[in-house]
Simulated assay, not measured.
Amino acid sequence: MLDLRPSSAAEPLGVEEVIGCLRQRWRATYDLQLVVRRGRLYLHVMWAYLEQQSFPMDENSYRDHLAEVLDVVNRLGLAGEVRNWLLTTRDKPRLGKALSLQLQVEGPEAESLLKEFLV
């Protein structure tokens, strides 16, 4: 079980923690994507997962990709928000329908990260 005491809410999210959470919640290691739409940043839990034969990444590539997504989340200071959402959302990714969390991004760091995604 993940530790959700207030002191851990601000701790950076790690690859192992997120993989454990995904497997515990949905028994599958779903793909996470960051998407920018109309100047807003969203975290999507996609319907494709590592355990599928047709999944386009091997485990090492998946872990690298997840580390990149989590780096952005952590740099924006949103680890606690994402952690809480992953643990409490009542929805489940379904074929063709990703789960979506709008990330509240503010300040110069956020603007520069958004620009990176728009390039």
Rank of each mutant, 00 (worst) to 15 (best):
41 L>A: 00
79 A>L: 11
26 W>H: 08
13 L>Y: 00
23 R>D: 10
73 V>Y: 07
55 F>V: 06
57 M>C: 00
2 L>M: 15
22 L>R: 07
52 Q>H: 04
99 L>R: 00
97 K>A: 05
3 D>Q: 10
52 Q>C: 05
13 L>I: 07
4 L>K: 10
65 H>A: 05
89 T>A: 01
64 D>R: 02
87 L>R: 15
17 E>W: 03
78 L>R: 03
6 P>K: 00
48 A>Y: 00
19 I>S: 00
33 Q>N: 10
59 E>Y: 10
23 R>P: 09
38 R>E: 15
116 E>L: 12
75 R>P: 07
68 E>M: 08
107 G>N: 04
12 P>N: 04
59 E>N: 11
30 Y>N: 02
119 V>S: 11
118 L>F: 07
95 L>N: 01
33 Q>Y: 11
71 D>N: 04
111 E>K: 13
61 S>T: 13
111 E>F: 08
25 R>D: 12
95 L>G: 02
38 R>C: 11
58 D>N: 12
102 Q>H: 08
2 L>G: 00
81 E>G: 01
16 E>V: 11
39 G>N: 07
80 G>L: 07
68 E>G: 09
5 R>P: 08
26 W>V: 07
92 K>A: 15
114 L>G: 04
117 F>A: 03
66 L>N: 09
23 R>L: 14
27 R>N: 15
5 R>L: 14
50 L>C: 03
31 D>E: 13
68 E>S: 09
31 D>W: 14
70 L>C: 01
119 V>H: 13
114 L>I: 04
74 N>F: 14
94 R>D: 09
64 D>S: 03
22 L>N: 00
40 R>C: 05
20 G>D: 13
49 Y>W: 02
7 S>L: 07
102 Q>M: 08
56 P>H: 05
36 V>R: 08
74 N>V: 07
53 Q>P: 13
82 V>H: 02
51 E>R: 04
50 L>D: 12
93 P>R: 10
90 R>Q: 15
8 S>N: 01
81 E>A: 12
68 E>L: 12
102 Q>E: 15
19 I>W: 08
54 S>M: 06
65 H>E: 07
61 S>N: 11
46 M>C: 09
49 Y>A: 11
110 A>Q: 05
119 V>I: 14
74 N>I: 05
8 S>A: 15
68 E>W: 14
77 G>I: 10
98 A>V: 02
104 Q>R: 03
88 T>Q: 12
42 Y>H: 12
17 E>P: 02
27 R>E: 15
62 Y>A: 08
116 E>D: 15
26 W>D: 01
1 M>K: 10
111 E>C: 10
1 M>A: 03
85 W>Q: 14
103 L>Y: 00
56 P>V: 04
23 R>E: 09
87 L>N: 15
55 F>C: 04
41 L>C: 00
74 N>T: 02
82 V>K: 00
84 N>I: 09
115 K>C: 08
50 L>W: 14
102 Q>T: 05
